[in-house]
């Protein structure tokens, strides 16, 4: 009847579809804004610079862990070893705090151990074609077991989260700007630049989008994958160090509770677990959304269990929406 109105309506639907498909970060920012608005309505006055600082501080380690998932998911993989590796890193650093080399030695040992674990994972996935889910799962068993052994060996020397880690993990500038941004901002720039402007980043997308095409174009996927899992493991270690500093604890299961939210943040951020689609920008927003959502549910007085139910439901709904808008029909 009213052709132009119908066309208009259709246009809007298509535009939304396109927006969600091509620039998912825009609707995600909108969702984040709505959540912040709702939390302000629920508890007037809560949103303040200090509150923002707390949210950002909590989001940073989650975003890094989600970054591990983003990078691996771009190639069609996943990294379930980040929890074990992150915990291990925080734990090793804490136990080496009284060693001659001090904190620096601890961090170097932790990062090196993480890189080694990532290297082995990468060889398994890249060379032996073990499914990433299983390979990283197996690696997490190995790392967790060795961490436990390390724990028993080191228990007599005494341990503690080093002050420097506590500072960078939990302190803020003027009660607002968390110092963990000192780690996060350079890392983010590196990842964003890496994904958009380097040959390596292109290959991550290529392998995930179409491994056959990548191969026919001359890509040797094993090289890319080995490097990828080393990067992911080192990022997991960095996140683990920050979490250990934030919570002032060091335990072999410290990061475990962040594993599933990390995957969730990447999925919400628009990265497809099937590979070839997504990016770190969306993931950061995804991590912020999850953190704000947690805060909102706390403000609303909803208990932790309800939060989990809401979390899970949101992931399914968002993933289904992405699947709908990105599938060719």
């Amino acid at each position: 009847m009213n052709a132009s109105a119908r066309a208009n309506e259709w246009l809007t639907a298509v535009t939304w579809r396109r927006l969600l498909r091509d620039r998912p970060i825009v609707p995600l920012m909108g969702l984040l804004a709505i959540l912040v608005l709702v939390i302000e309505l629920a508890d007037p006055g809560i949103v303040s610079p200090e509150w923002t600082g707390v949210i950002v501080r909590a989001s940073v380690p989650l975003a890094i862990l989600a970054g591990c998932q983003t990078l691996t998911m771009l190639t069609g993989g996943i990294d379930l070893s980040v929890a074990a590796i992150g915990s291990m890193a925080g734990f090793v650093t804490a136990t080496l705090v009284h060693s001659p080399g001090g904190v620096a030695e601890g961090i170097i040992v932790a990062l090196a151990a993480a890189a080694l674990a990532g290297l082995l994972t990468g060889i398994g996935v890249g060379v032996f074609r073990v499914h990433p889910l299983i390979m990283t799962l197996g690696m997490s068993f190995v790392v967790l077991g060795l961490s436990n052994v390390w724990q028993l060996q080191m228990v007599q020397t005494g341990a503690g989260v080093p002050d420097s880690l506590r500072w960078i993990g939990s302190s803020t500038l003027a009660q607002v700007v968390p110092y963990n941004l000192l780690v996060f901002i350079p890392l983010t720039l590196l990842i964003l630049l890496g994904l958009r402007r380097t040959g390596y980043g292109r290959l991550l997308y290529a392998i995930g989008d179409n491994p056959v095409a990548a191969r026919l174009s001359g890509t040797r996927a094993w090289q890319v994958l080995i490097v990828l899992y080393v990067i992911s493991a080192v990022m997991a270690a960095i996140a683990g160090l920050l979490i250990s500093g934030l919570t002032n604890t060091a335990s072999v299961s410290l990061v475990d509770t962040s594993l599933l939210p990390a995957v969730a943040a990447a999925v919400i951020g628009g990265t497809s677990i099937l590979g070839g689609r997504g990016g770190f920008g969306g993931t950061i927003v995804g991590a912020l959304i999850l953190t704000v959502l947690t805060a909102l549910l706390t403000v609303l007085g909803l208990p932790e269990p309800t939060r989990q139910v809401v979390f899970g439901s949101i992931i399914v709904v968002v993933a289904a929406a992405y699947t709908r808008v990105t599938s060719e029909s």
Partner: peptide
């Protein structure tokens, strides 16, 4: 993987 991971939160 995604669906059941999400449902693991829910359950």
């Amino acid at each position: 993987i995604v669906v059941t991971l999400a449902m693991s939160f829910v359950w």
